[in-house]
Computed example of a mutant assay.
Amino acid sequence: MAFTVFIDGAVGTTGLEIRERLTGRTEFDLVVLGEAQRKDPAARRAALNDSDFAILCLPDDAAIEAVAMIDPASKTRVIDASSAHRVADGWTYGFPELTGRDQVANARLVSNPGCYPTGFLGLVAPLVRAGLLPADWPFTINAVSGFSGGGKALIERFEADPELAFRTYALGFGHKHIPEMQRHAGLAHAPLFAPSVVPAYRGMLVEVPLPLAAIPGAASPADISACLAAFFAGSPVVWIEPADTQELLLRTQDAPHDDMLLSVYADAHGTQARLIARLDNLGKGASGAAVQNLNLMAGLPETAGLALPNN
């Protein structure tokens, strides 16, 4: 018998991509509301409470509202793709490689990670846990993403303005991803986050520069690379990529993919390093991660329906 899945917010970028990944899969029956029903609170409430799984692809306030519509006694299990519950008590953080696959598989409430935090945490959290980097270091994150991560408004802005070549933002500090990154990496201080957007639809590079010679107790680049390789050994989604190139590129027409590649670049003396994650902001950074979590929660193969090199 197939599991019923209701994607609340299925017309948004993340929701559309989740639906695309689930279409044709016999393990799931999608619960689809018409235009009028989507705006009818009673119809939404029924869909949320009658489905085996609800995936929320909504703004934060709407996601909180949707969760409040779900009867605690209902069978519904939730994956929230918004940032509303990523540091909330009672929610399991949906990064199986960090949180644990069993914890995600057995959870009722799962908060899907943000795209930038996925890259940062994949690079830093294993190293802090292993004591190879100090938890009280003031980490910096330089990151660039395709414009689809900003939702419909930013997509329309870039598509309407061919001269728009670069956008840096979060200049007021306090970006909503910061508490998520600090908490799940176990950091004493909020990292300094510098995100930017380029005129590519999808794709993302997340970089953490490390002045190793100045960091008390920091490990060598070789030990850092070995730690990441060991931590993600056997993962079908997160890969360690050799640092054997002089450039990393985002292309305007990159194909969707649901894996994440991590690299450790270092100078010849091991005094400086650049940790870099490459991922699709709509893949492992959003929709692909939601489907990975859904697979685990449904007791299915973790990578079913994902766009991966060996799938």
Rank of each mutant, 00 (worst) to 15 (best):
279 L>T: 09
292 Q>T: 13
179 P>G: 00
267 D>A: 03
199 P>T: 05
162 P>V: 13
184 H>N: 02
255 A>F: 12
168 T>L: 13
231 F>C: 10
233 A>H: 11
237 V>W: 00
267 D>R: 05
192 L>Q: 07
241 E>A: 01
264 V>P: 02
267 D>H: 06
174 G>F: 05
238 V>I: 15
168 T>N: 14
246 Q>L: 08
255 A>H: 11
266 A>M: 10
194 A>S: 07
229 A>H: 03
204 M>F: 04
259 D>R: 12
261 L>K: 13
159 E>C: 10
209 P>D: 05
240 I>V: 14
166 F>S: 12
250 L>V: 03
194 A>H: 08
210 L>E: 10
298 A>G: 00
249 L>Y: 05
278 R>Y: 02
183 R>S: 02
220 S>G: 08
224 I>S: 05
298 A>V: 00
279 L>P: 06
231 F>A: 13
168 T>Y: 11
277 A>D: 02
174 G>Y: 04
213 A>C: 00
252 T>G: 14
299 G>V: 05
187 L>F: 14
182 Q>L: 06
240 I>P: 01
219 A>V: 08
216 P>T: 05
256 P>S: 08
186 G>I: 11
229 A>M: 03
221 P>H: 12
281 N>Y: 01
165 A>W: 02
272 Q>R: 05
195 P>W: 04
286 A>H: 12
186 G>P: 10
219 A>C: 07
162 P>W: 06
196 S>V: 00
179 P>V: 04
281 N>H: 03
171 L>G: 15
300 L>S: 06
295 N>I: 13
181 M>G: 06
225 S>A: 15
269 H>R: 11
158 F>D: 10
256 P>T: 09
288 G>M: 07
230 A>F: 00
286 A>Q: 11
290 A>G: 09
248 L>K: 14
282 L>P: 00
202 R>Q: 14
264 V>G: 03
246 Q>S: 12
171 L>R: 15
182 Q>P: 01
236 P>F: 01
237 V>Q: 01
205 L>K: 02
213 A>V: 04
228 L>H: 09
281 N>F: 01
271 T>N: 00
169 Y>F: 15
276 I>M: 03
258 D>L: 10
223 D>W: 01
259 D>N: 14
297 M>A: 06
221 P>T: 07
227 C>R: 06
219 A>N: 06
165 A>L: 13
223 D>H: 08
266 A>Q: 07
260 M>Y: 00
170 A>L: 11
269 H>S: 05
167 R>W: 02
251 R>E: 07
294 L>T: 09
